[in-house]
């Protein structure tokens, strides 16, 4: 939700104090970090990129015109950073070989909320989460970003389009294809 502080951020970007910037970091860091963690699937890299994301935001305050929400703008910076990171990641081959790339997949599966479910139901739910992650891993960087923003961040299609600089139609197409694959994978499981 936009507040007086965040809406003033666009108009008087250059005049923002260190305390005001700190307040913005505290308000948005959880979502930015989570999005980056889902995209890069490496907690350490997600930490570094979150820091980089806020630093870039501070350095480019003048380019924020308040056309989208502050959070959408931050997520756009995060998505660009993750894309650059994926391009430059030299160790990806070794990470994949050692299975470190599956960190988020296994980590998320271990965090399936159990509630009153039986052990068997929890096991099935974990399989589902792994299957969906498996599909998400096969998607292109942009498709994965769209998919995660929709189903993890639960963002509206227009917000996703703003955050990734896409048309709403393209967001729908990316989601449609991703969902077809998810359905296929879930069908194979049962």
């Amino acid at each position: 939700m936009e507040t007086a502080l965040t809406s003033a951020f666009g108009a008087a970007a250059q005049k923002i104090t260190a305390e005001e910037f700190d307040a913005i970091v505290r308000r948005h860091q959880r979502r930015v970090h989570r999005f980056l963690l889902m995209l890069v699937r490496d907690p350490e890299e997600a930490d570094n990129l979150t820091q980089e994301c806020f630093l870039r935001a501070y350095q480019n305050l003048s380019s924020f015109r308040g056309e989208s929400s502050l959070e959408t703008w931050l997520l756009r910076i995060a998505a660009n950073l993750a894309r650059d990171h994926a391009r430059n990641r030299k160790a990806s081959f070794w990470k994949r070989l050692l299975g470190l790339d599956d960190e988020a997949e296994n980590g998320a599966a271990a965090h399936v909320p159990s509630g009153d479910a039986s052990p068997e139901q929890v096991l099935l739910a974990r399989e589902d989460v792994r299957a969906v992650w498996d599909v998400a891993n096969q998607l292109s960087q942009q498709q994965r970003a769209v998919f995660l923003l929709r189903f993890v961040e639960e963002m509206e299609l227009t917000e996703i389009a703003d955050a990734l600089g896409l048309q709403v139609g393209s967001v729908k197409t990316h989601l449609f294809r991703a969902l077809q694959t998810v359905r296929g994978k879930l069908r194979d499981l049962r």
Partner: peptide, 11 residues
């Protein structure tokens, strides 16, 4: 829905 919840919890 489970996928989203598990990932939010994981993060």
């Amino acid at each position: 829905c489970r996928f989203g919840a598990a990932n939010r919890e994981y993060a």
